[in-house]
């Protein structure tokens, strides 16, 4: 098992370096026009001395490979550079926001798991019933509706209209308030972020469960006199859940990386929103640093999923030995 983990970790290194190369090349002035000095000191006139100072500080007069080497050396020391716009270390800026993004992704995963699985099970058990049609229709809508539209729609309905109608409402705009974050702050953004994945989880659960329920051993279990509940929970679910669990695990990584739109719509103070702003201002150190942090986290999450999967299914970790 340790050899398997070591192999997976070693495989991560070239992927990570490859991503840093791509990110670094994308931000280089050779590919993206614009003077980095101007991004740092603004558009107004500055002295030549200050211009030269900024060039020197950022090694902008050196060849690209030197700049990359310098960047990578600092990166492995945990230094992502300073923001052009905010003139503060990128690590500080991102790590202020990272907990909010992680919390949102975890809440979304929870919502996805609970609602997605429940809907999928309901749909499979009540095949072709009203509930099945409802789930099928709802998942089709959730998959189709863009995140920003859903987010705005939920805010209008549960934040503005409910309040106007005198109903209990959600303070969906208070992500910036002092009491952030309480449970209520997570409901709408969590649901929005989870929406598409939740639908997929429901569909996968339904199809897997239906497939499993058609197996011979399910009929045998029923023929033995087991109750329907026992047949489904003890025999059906265990077998149907393997691909679902894999999907959920992998999806956590996707959620961490995919919060930008949700964070924007809900003004959620997370890494995604920070990256979005930085892209607009071309604050490359934040964009590059943010993407690197997200990539790193996705890689770690995927590693954990792979390892746990190896625990669940011994065939995976013994593949090499069998060969």
């Amino acid at each position: 098992m340790l050899a398997y983990i070591a192999r997976r970790v070693v495989q991560m290194i070239p992927v990570f370096i490859g991503i840093t190369v791509i990110l670094f090349l994308i931000r280089s002035p050779a590919i993206v026009p614009g003077d980095p000095v101007r991004m740092i000191v603004g558009e107004r006139a500055i002295s030549q001395a200050l211009y030269d100072q900024v060039v020197k500080e950022n090694a902008l007069d050196k060849p690209l490979y030197y700049q990359y080497g310098r960047y990578l050396t600092r990166l492995v020391q945990g230094d992502l550079g300073d923001s052009y716009q905010l003139k503060r270390p990128v690590t500080h800026i991102l790590f202020e926001k990272l907990p909010n993004t992680l919390k949102l992704a975890l809440v979304a995963l929870l919502i996805e798991t609970v609602i997605g699985l429940a809907a999928g099970i309901l749909s499979a058990v009540k095949k072709y019933s009203f509930w099945d049609m409802l789930v099928t229709l709802s998942t089709a809508i959730l998959v189709s509706v863009p995140v920003f539209w859903l987010g705005m729609g939920l805010q209008v309905l549960f934040g503005v209209k409910f309040k106007q109608w005198g109903l209990p409402y959600l303070p969906v705009y208070d992500m910036t308030s002092r009491d952030f974050s309480t449970v209520v702050h997570f409901i709408m953004p969590g649901f929005t972020l989870a929406s598409a994945s939740m639908a997929y989880a429901a569909r996968i659960t339904r199809s897997q469960l239906l497939e499993v329920m058609g197996q011979d051993y399910m009929r045998t279990a029923a023929a033995k006199g087991l109750s329907r509940r026992d047949v489904i929970w003890k025999h059906g679910m265990k077998n149907a859940m393997i691909p679902v669990v894999t999907f959920l695990g992998m999806d956590l990584g996707a959620m961490v990386g995919g919060t930008i739109l949700t964070e924007m719509v809900f003004n959620w103070p997370g890494v995604g929103l920070e990256i979005y702003n930085a892209i607009q201002l071309r604050d490359w150190p934040i964009v590059t640093g943010g993407v690197i942090v997200i990539v790193f986290m996705v890689m770690i999450i995927n590693l954990i999923v792979d390892i746990s999967y190896a625990f669940l299914d011994p065939r995976i970790r013994y593949t090499k030995a069998v060969k």
Partner: peptide, 30 residues
Amino acid sequence: MVRTRKPALYGIIPALLLTGVLLAMTACGQ
């Protein structure tokens, strides 16, 4: 076909979710 009692969980999940959301909304809707 063996008819079994309807698993309570099917009804509980949406009920709990709805209750939780409404409680949360009530708490913050002051």
